[in-house]
Write a protein that binds this DNA or RNA. Structure first.
Length: 325
DNA sequence: AATAGGTCCAACCGCGGCGAG
DNA sequence: GCTCGCCGCGGTTGGACCTAT
């Protein structure tokens, strides 16, 4: 399998930003003679550039049908949909659809693959992350560290009071939901209690810190539909389930240690969370946790600390109140 | 007003696929 | 079957621009 020799070492060829004069030469040549061989084009057009550079300049910037300006919401949605469809780029001889960005670009007339790639990396990727979605898999985020990083550290309470958007509430819930999903499948080696016990520890700790009923916090771990209406009805829909399940834990099976409760019997664990992620996603998540090489107790305490930070501020208090009003 | 840090995007780079000889 | 040269891909970089302090 041959490979083209690197031309990066050829210092006689110009690199960097294109000048107006170079652009004009390239446009004039292609308009008169067509593209032909990119390798031979620079010489013929009188350009001191490599063929690759000319091709890139033409396809990404100079070709007449190129569309400039911001992406519309329709284009945005198409990119997200196609990206979830095509996934990561895998070069495969047996498939006709091997390239992600070029395939997506073919569905968006006037947009280059480079432009779409840049738009994805600078806008859409972050947008999905903020929504608790893993951009690569389009599944709920499975990386525990990433999840914690996504938790907002501070939100302007005045802004909250005036302009609290439903999607912000949902995004926050999605992140919390994912965290609980992670914790809800991790065993606690020291106590013998299962992960749900750990989730409960976490929630209980959060409740202790902020004076909020931990049961209410736990309700947040249930997936909610992406509209505020479902959030408003959450306590009615899930509250009873939780109250019932919690009431079944006999007091003698609940330990009190440093203000943190933990169940000592799997039988009395909290209900299994409704899956927010696919089985594959959850498996990846568990692998991710395994690879962290952090003692369980450390994770638990980190969680508690993070959770405490999350809810122990004015803005977040406002959030919880907002959800349960 | 100055400047440090963050964001965006055009362009570059290295690599793999593929056709021709 | 192997080598060579070209094409085009995804990932990365560097500098211009923007924003916050």
């Amino acid at each position: 399998m041959g490979r083209s020799p690197s031309r990066s070492s050829d210092i006689s060829l110009k690199k960097g930003p294109w000048t107006l004069e170079e652009d004009k030469k390239l446009i004039d040549y292609i308009q008169k003679h067509g593209k032909g061989s990119w390798q031979k084009l620079p010489n013929k057009a009188g350009l001191n550039r490599c063929g690759k550079s000319c091709r890139l300049r033409w396809t990404n910037y100079l070709r007449p049908d190129i569309k400039r300006g911001n992406f519309s919401s329709d284009e945005e949605q198409i990119i997200i949909d196609l990206h979830s469809l095509h996934g990561n780029s895998v070069i495969n001889k047996d498939t006709t659809c091997a390239y992600r960005w070029s395939t997506i670009a073919s569905h968006l007339p006037g947009r280059s693959d480079n432009e779409i790639k840049n738009f994805w990396n600078t806008n859409l990727r972050k947008k999905l992350l903020r929504s608790g979605i893993e951009p690569k898999t389009h599944q709920p985020i499975s990386d525990l560290n990433l999840l914690f990083n996504l938790l907002p550290t501070s939100i302007n309470p005045w802004e909250n009071a005036l302009e609290f958007h439903a999607d912000q509430v949902n995004q926050k819930i999605q992140v919390l939901q994912n965290i609980l999903k992670v914790l809800s499948t991790r065993p606690l080696p020291n106590t013998g209690a299962n992960c749900l016990g750990e989730s409960y520890n976490l929630i209980q700790a959060g409740g202790c810190i902020n004076g909020i009923d931990p049961l209410q916090l736990q309700e947040l771990s249930y997936p909610l539909s992406p509209n505020l209406g479902s959030i408003e009805s959450a306590p009615e829909r899930f509250g009873a389930i939780y109250m019932n399940s919690m009431e079944t834990i006999p007091e003698n099976l609940v330990n009190q240690t440093n203000g943190i409760r933990s169940t000592s019997n799997e039988e009395y664990s909290l209900p299994v969370l409704v899956p927010a992620a696919t089985e594959t996603c959850t498996a990846n998540l568990m692998n991710s946790i395994s690879s962290m090489h952090i003692p369980n107790q450390t994770i638990a305490s980190n969680c508690i600390e993070t959770w405490g930070n999350l809810i122990d501020d004015d803005a977040s208090s406002y959030l919880w109140k907002e959800i349960y009003l």
